[in-house]
């Protein structure tokens, strides 16, 4: 079994207009910037994919990565918990102009909705958001004297994920707090596309330390020295990056 693909363009080839795309990361940590940039390249060359629904904790920062995807006009709707950042100008301007839709979800509920989507659980109850504006219209039930809000699973057509090491079967490890939403999104998408800093032979990762088992992964592409969003933003970079 070998899930590796030759290049980034091949890795993002299956993403079509109107799809729901989960993108891993929390701010810049764990953000698959090179996969996002490859998707932008395709859009600039072909006009597709567009009208995407993107699921991410945030709404991008500066003019690279997710912010650049939004700036390119490829995103119709964003599902996230915190669409603010040090430099949120791209999302903010589109949102205030009514040109991008926002579904705001509490962070833990977002994580659990994605986990539920991957685990085949269509709905669950959580105390989070009970009695607030974000619970409006959602069923409430009492358990052991406390009120809980019913939330639904979240699934995607594609997940774009950043891992540290992958083997050719798709078993993954992550680096530090770059893990965040990535393992959950691997489970919740019909097709999970991974960029990994290292690709090794099956057996080279200790089975005890694998975080995402390969069953949740469909494609792997090697990006040996990935950009870090914070470094790009500190250099005031804009995508496409200067050579």
């Amino acid at each position: 079994m070998d899930k590796t693909v030759a290049d980034l363009a091949t890795a993002v080839a299956g993403i079509e207009d109107g799809m729901t795309v989960m993108i891993g990361g929390f701010g810049g940590a764990g953000s698959p910037i090179e996969l996002i940039h490859a998707l932008i390249d395709r859009f600039r060359a072909t006009g597709h994919p567009k009208a995407l629904t993107v699921v991410n904790n945030n709404a991008g920062n500066g003019h690279v990565g997710l912010a650049a995807l939004i700036e390119a006009g490829m995103v119709r709707k964003l599902i996230c918990s915190f669409p603010r950042s040090a430099d949120p100008v791209v999302f903010t301007e589109l949102y205030l102009a009514g040109r991008i839709e926002l579904e705001l979800v509490p962070q833990g509920t977002l994580a659990e909705r994605i986990r539920a989507g991957g685990a085949g659980i269509p709905a669950f109850y959580t105390p989070t958001s009970f009695g607030t504006d974000l619970a409006k219209g959602k069923p409430v039930e009492e358990f052991e004297g406390r009120s809980y809000v019913r939330e639904r699973w979240l699934k995607a057509d594609v997940a774009l994920v950043k891992a540290e090491t992958a083997d050719r079967h798709g078993n993954l490890t992550y680096r530090a707090a770059a893990r965040n939403f990535n393992p959950l999104m691997c489970m919740a998408a019909a097709q999970t596309v991974v960029q990994a800093s290292h690709i090794v032979a099956p057996g080279a990762i200790d089975p005890e330390v694998i975080v995402t088992p390969g069953i949740f992964v469909q494609k792997i592409v090697q990006v040996s020295h990935p950009h870090q969003e914070e470094d790009l933003n500190r250099a005031n970079a804009t995508y496409p990056l200067e050579a």
């Binding site: 918990s81 915190f82 669409p83 949120p88 903010t92 705001l104 509490p106 962070q107 833990g108 105390p127």
Partner: peptide, 15 residues
């Protein structure tokens, strides 16, 4: 007004 953002606040107040 503005852009709403909630993050983990609604989760943290429970639990």
């Amino acid at each position: 007004r503005g852009v709403p953002a909630v993050g983990g606040a609604m989760d943290l107040v429970h639990g």
